[in-house]
Every structure is written in C-alpha cells, then in structure tokens.
Design a protein around this nucleic acid. Structure first.
Lengths: 240, 240
DNA sequence: ACCTGAACACCGTTCAAGT
DNA sequence: ACCTGAACACCGTTCAAGT
C-alpha cells in the first residue's frame, strides 16, 4: 500500500468522493442538478479542480452510470429473491436460466429506481463501459445455460436489455419526482401515475386500461412483461 | 377564417415556426442544441420573445415530441408496409392484429430514428400529451381486435410501448451521431456500432454476440424483437 | 398582445499562475 | 501534480419599457 505520490501538493479528493457528491445531487434534484460547479462546491473545491479527475462532465456522468451498474449482480441479486417469489433462490441455484434472468432484471430495476435521476444518463448514452459489458456477458451466460443457440442467445440478450431499460426508463419518466420510495409506498404512487387522469371521453380504452394498470405495483407489471418476453424467446426455440 | 386579432403589434411568429426551428437545431446538434436563445436567433427574434408562445423550455420540448407523435399512424403507416414484408398491407386490411402492431411500431421507429435528438426528450418525460395518448389508444384497439381480454390487452399495450421506446432509445444512443441516415447506409453503420469493438478476452460471449448482431440491420433486429414480444403475448392467451 | 434591451443567476471549460 | 482566480462564451428566465 505504498503511496506512490507524485511531486505536487496533496491530492485533496478522490474520484469516488466526486461521484458520491454527484450522486447525492442527482438524487436530490435530478440529472441536471449535478453540475460541475455544484459538485465542486459540494466537495469544497474550485469548479475547475474537478477537471483534474475527469476530462469533462460527460466523463463524470459515464463514471456515475458505471458505478451503479457495477453494484448489480455481485453475488447475483440476493435481495431480489424475495421479489421473484418463493423458491427463486433454489431454482437459480439449480440453473433455471429464466429465474436467473429474472433475478438479474429485478436487481437492475431495484438499483436504478432507487436513483431515478441516473436513468436518463444510462439510457442516453451507449452501453460500452466495462460494467455494462459485464452485464451483457452475464445475460449471455444465462441464455447459453438455457440452451438457446448462439444467434438466438445474442438477439435474446439484447431483447431482454431493451425490455429492462425501456421499462425502467418509462417507469421513472412517469414517476412524480419521488426519489427512492419505500416499498410500501409503491402501490399508492402507482395509482396517481400518468394514466391516473386520462380523459375518458376521448380515450375510452386508455382510461379503462389505466384502471387495470393501477391494480399492480411496478414490480408486478415489470415481472409480467419480462415473462412475456422470455415466453416469446422460448417459443422461438420450439419452432426453430 | 376571420383573423380575430387582438390589439398589439403584428404576431411575427407562429408556434409551428418555432417548432420548425427547434427541430432543425435538434437534428443538427442533438437535443441540447435547441436552446431558447438559438431558437430565437433562428426565427429572428429576441430570446424572451419565445416566452410569448411557450411558457418555458420544457413546453417547447413537449410540443416538439407531440408534433412528431402526431405524424405517426395517420392512415396507418403506409410507408412502413414495404419494411414489414409482402402481404402486410393485405393482412392489415383483413384485420390481423399482429401486422397492425408491427406497422405501427415500424412507423414510429422510422419517424423517431429520422430525428434521433428528439428521442431523449420523448423517453425522458411522461407520455401524457394527446398524441401520445392517441397512440396508446390505437395500440389498445389493435389488441382488442386481436381478441385479447382487457387485462392482457392493457398490460400488453404497455409492454409493446416499452419495447418500442426501449429499442429506439438504445438504437439512437448507440448510433454515432449520424442524423437521418439514408436506408442503404443502415447496414454499414450497424457494423461499427457499440458492439463493434468489444474486448474479446474479457467478454468472449459479448464479442461473439456482436458478430451475430452485425449480420442484421436495425430494422430486422427491431422486428425480430417485436415478434418475440407478440409471441409472448399470444402464448399468455393460450395458457390462460 | 407582442416584442425589445438589460439584467440576474447560472452553466462548462480554458488559461495563467501559484505550490 | 493539483489547486485557485479570473475569464470566456454560453444558458433559462424575468422585468420594465416600448408599440
């Protein structure tokens, strides 16, 4: 643990501290609240000092996304097993690929919904960081374990990623700036979401559909959609 | 057509002219290029004059998204029928709900990919404008025509929307700032997209998958994923 | 009612200078 | 090498004033 410190004055900060400050700002005020100047103020430094650690603002945002993705799937989504239902952990242990995908997807959702302001940053840029690629690799592992042939596995992994990111993006876009809700509050918030007051005269079906959607919390809707996607993938194997 | 003009000096602009300028800026330089000041300059007016037409910048962005959504599905996606394959128009005419959904989804993709800078604005905010709701209504119509029971139709329409927006968002996020490609260029660009240079040593499966993905153009991948989603929906009807 | 000029409180980023 | 102060070229938005 030798401090291979170069000449100049003390290094006052670390990249991690900067990202901590950035995440706190994003959580408090959305993605646009994490300005370089505010981050610098939060860590007690002049604005331009941030450029010693990151080349520009986009790099800070990428690093923030990467850090969040890095927390996903370490020891595969232990906390998500309750959400996936009883027996999920055992099924995942036995190698049921679908349960593995569900746990991964649930973990990703849980971590991103906890930081809604990060989602636009994730969806807005290409998924090319190491942790993003690792996530894709993990998904491909699961598909291969499920016995999908390579071409279907590749397109299937992408499809699952599209679903997961799309569902999370729509969920946080509809949410009324309610950073990190406690789980019990989920059902209540679901009711006053976008579909809450659809003019029923002009859009009768949408108004009726809103009633249906309100009977499930976000997690249930999310899992239902994911399972339809996985059904579709499995069916494509059968008829191949 | 009486000009019910109020006292003051001439109305120099219309909302449409402002949106034209905003769209041109977005197309040229991405969503962040459409600043109020640049829009004002483009239409030849002082920055604050824009606030006579829209209450704030967010309203301009919402109107831009709404206008684009409004162009979708007028006379259901005539130009998309070639993409959907031969017989699509006839099948849609006979009321095949799946083909109807595919045409709608293809039309939406075509129009949004032509204006990639608008996509973050669409995905970033709630879909609550009239044209967004109309799109949802249209999707629910198709589901109902397909004989899906109301609860499945509601969740299914949402699922399709998640897929469509997720797929388009990932596609434009990965694209190398290539506004409005001519169709023939699509296959070429597909190859140097994100997955183009995945480090194969660390992510062997992702590198192999990148090879698979490169063999299809965006439209083919998009339709394949949509069809898996629709398969999953149809299967959920069978086992119900 | 619609537009302008001027101002306010912000941005990201760069540069020269200090240690 | 890391930080500061000052500056540049931008933002969105507001306000008072003109017609």
């Amino acid at each position: 643990m030798q401090q291979r410190q170069r000449p100049g004055p003390r290094r006052a900060l670390t990249e991690e501290e900067i990202l901590d400050a950035a995440l706190a700002l994003v959580d408090a005020g959305g993605a646009e609240a994490a300005s370089i100047r505010r981050i610098a103020a939060a860590v007690g430094v002049a604005p331009n000092a941030v450029y010693t650690y990151f080349p520009d603002k986009a790099a800070v945002e990428r690093a923030l996304v990467e850090r969040l993705l890095g927390e996903v799937d370490h020891a595969t989504a232990v906390a998500s097993r309750a959400e996936a239902g009883p027996g999920a952990a055992e099924a995942a242990g036995r190698g049921d690929w679908r349960v593995g995908v569900e746990l991964l997807a649930l973990d990703l959702r849980r971590r991103l919904v906890a930081h809604p302001g990060v989602v636009p940053l994730l969806v807005g840029g290409p998924m090319e960081g190491p942790n993003a690629l690792f996530l894709g690799e993990r998904l491909l592992d699961l598909m291969a374990a499920g016995g999908l042939e390579p071409a279907v596995a590749a397109r299937g992994a992408y499809l699952v990623m599209v679903y997961v990111l799309g569902a999370i993006a729509l969920e946080v876009a509809d949410a009324p700036r309610a950073a990190a809700l406690p789980p019990e509050a989920e059902r209540i918030t679901a009711r006053r979401t976008t579909l809450g007051r659809v003019p029923g005269e002009r859009f009768p079906r949408a108004a009726a559909a809103a009633g249906v959607m309100a009977t499930w919390v976000g997690t249930e809707q999310y899992l239902w959609g994911l399972r339809r996607v996985l059904d579709g993938l499995e069916r494509s194997r059968e008829i191949e």
